[in-house]
């Protein structure tokens, strides 16, 4: 299968290899939550809702030096159309929950909120590849919306390697091609990688290219997220009427 047309250089959906899908972020989509956001990468659409910092529900888990971060990832049953997947509690969701929790925890200043708990709920509404990345981006927006102190914005993007070409931001078709899928999460200002996952084998020379491409993608997303936050802050300013 030609995932990159050898004659025109375009991918199946008309992108060039180093182009991302269209992204869109929106803050404040769940009224009841302390912070919430919607994030879209092409046809992948996720909602993040953040509760906390609040009292620890299970006292046994309470920590004196830092806040407890919990994360729950689930996919809506309608998110995949015919591609039926089990939601909640299966191995895949548990793994992604854990990965996202660890990634976000690395950025949240947990020591400022001892003996408290922060819950991040992630719901995939539409899945078209790259749900992991979209969830992390949504969670960042929601955490910022909730006013939780963070070291830096965490953004994530994936990249793959198909038809001897590094490809940015794989969609479902490209993802299921069986090639490597490198998901990267970065702290952009600090220029640090907090998440790096890959499920296939890839020679090291190509891996560096793919990783670099994914990091570039993260930077682009960070720029966009900053814009969204700025926009939101301006809106809040207007609402306060100053």
């Amino acid at each position: 299968m030609e995932y990159v047309n050898p004659l025109t250089g375009f991918r199946l959906d008309g992108r060039r290899p180093n182009e991302m899908r269209q992204i869109r972020g929106e803050i404040g989509v769940v009224a009841k939550a302390d912070g919430s956001a919607l994030f879209e990468m092409g046809n992948t659409k996720v909602i993040a809702a953040v509760y906390g910092p609040r009292e620890v529900q299970n006292k046994g888990q309470q920590m004196d030096g830092q806040a407890l971060v919990r994360c729950e990832y689930s996919m809506a049953n309608f998110s995949t159309g015919d591609r039926a997947r089990k939601s909640k509690g299966d191995r895949r969701s548990t793994e992604i929950s854990l990965v996202i929790r660890q990634t976000m925890e690395a950025s949240i200043l947990t020591h400022l909120m001892p003996r408290s708990q922060i819950d991040i709920f992630l719901q995939v509404l539409q899945a078209d590849g790259g749900t992991r990345s979209a969830c992390i981006n949504a969670a960042t927006l929601a955490l910022a919306d909730a006013g939780i102190p963070m070291r830096d914005l965490v953004t994530s993007c994936s990249a793959g390697y198909l038809c001897s070409t590094p490809l940015l931001d794989l969609n479902y078709v490209e993802d299921s091609a069986g090639g490597p899928d490198v998901t990267v999460g970065t702290l952009v200002k600090m220029d640090k990688v907090t998440l790096l996952q890959m499920d296939a084998k890839l020679p090291i020379e190509m891996f560096t290219d793919v990783l670099q491409l994914a990091i570039e993608g993260c930077k682009a997303i960070a720029n966009y997220i900053q814009e969204v936050l700025l926009e939101n802050t301006k809106k809040l300013e207007c609402m306060r009427g100053s």
């Binding site: 959906d13 182009e19 092409g42 078709v173």
Partner: peptide, 27 residues
């Protein structure tokens, strides 16, 4: 320079499934 336009396509892979793919139009 990216314009997003989704379109709906039906394909047959043993059974009928609906595939939604993005289709970017460019200038």
């Amino acid at each position: 320079m990216l314009q997003s336009k989704s379109f709906v396509k039906k394909t047959k892979q043993g059974r009928v499934v609906k595939v939604v793919r993005e289709h970017y139009l460019r200038d």
